[in-house]
Every structure is written in structure tokens, then in C-alpha cells.
Amino acid sequence: MNSYLIRMTVPWLCPFLLVMSIWILLRGHNAPGGGFIGGLVAAAAIAFWCFARGVEDAKRWMRVSPLHLMIAGVSTALISGLMPMFAGKPMLTALWHKVEVPLLGKLPLGTPILFDIGVFFAVVGVTTSILFSLEEFELWNRSGPS
């Protein structure tokens, strides 16, 4: 985009949004949010970057390839689902473990949380991947011969 203002705002805005998305993800079990919403917000942040500064720049900023991100996300969710099978329980049975966290006190940590994290990454990866693919195609459409 040609707007200088927007180009300069985005690097400040996006990291903030990413942090927010992670917050939405983590509190999702107890308040509105969760993997889907968190992932979508994170993807929106990246979409901002992409719109404002171009696909290539957004890719560089992301560092990780969206394809890898989504594969990793699905794999994480899958692994969290498979874990109980090794404990002899049906797949996707939640395994909970109360963990002492310094500031927050006792927190239940379990495979559903891991599952949600997997969903988060999958959603981020998928959305950005789709966006990037279409953007690139569109860029080529615009520049290349019809």
C-alpha cells in the first residue's frame, strides 16, 4: 500500500495483536476465545501486515512457512489426541495434570489445552497460507500477461 501511515503503523500493531491472540487462545477454556478465535485473530494480524506491506514482507516477518505451521498444528492436535491411547484409554480422552505455576497458583494442564494450541497453529497456518497463495496469484495476475 502506498499509505505511509499504514505502513508504519502495522509493525507496531501486529505484534500487539499476536500477543492478544495468544491471550485469547490461552484463556479460551474459561472465557470467550480458544484456538479458533485466537488463531483467526493472529491470522488477521498477519493479514494486516500482508495488506499493508506486501506478501513477501509478511512472509519474511512470519519467518515460519504457513504450510509448516499448519502441518505442525494438526500434528500437535493429533498427538494430544493420541496420547491417551498409550495410557490405554480411548483416543482423545482428556488427561489432566495440576501444575503449580508460580504466580497463578495451581492450574490444570491437560491434553485439551495442547489440542487447542494445535488448533490455533492450524488455523493460523491455514488462513495465512490461503491468503498468501491468493495474494501471490493476484500479484502475478496484475503484473503478468493476461
Binding site: 504450510l67 502441518i71 494438526v74 500434528s75 493429533l78 493420541l82 491411547m85 480411548p90 483416543m91
Partner: peptide, 20 residues
């Protein structure tokens, strides 16, 4: 019991491995 999961999970795991 988890046998019934396999027809679904084997392809999924295979697909993910293939993507890797």
C-alpha cells in the same frame, strides 16, 4: 477398543508424514 480409531487415524498420520 482403540482399533476402531485406526481406519481414521492411520490415513491422517500417513498424510501428515507425507507432508513432512
Amino acid at each position: 477398543m482403540n482399533l476402531l480409531v485406526l481406519p481414521v487415524m492411520i490415513p491422517l498420520i500417513t498424510a501428515l508424514l507425507l507432508l513432512f
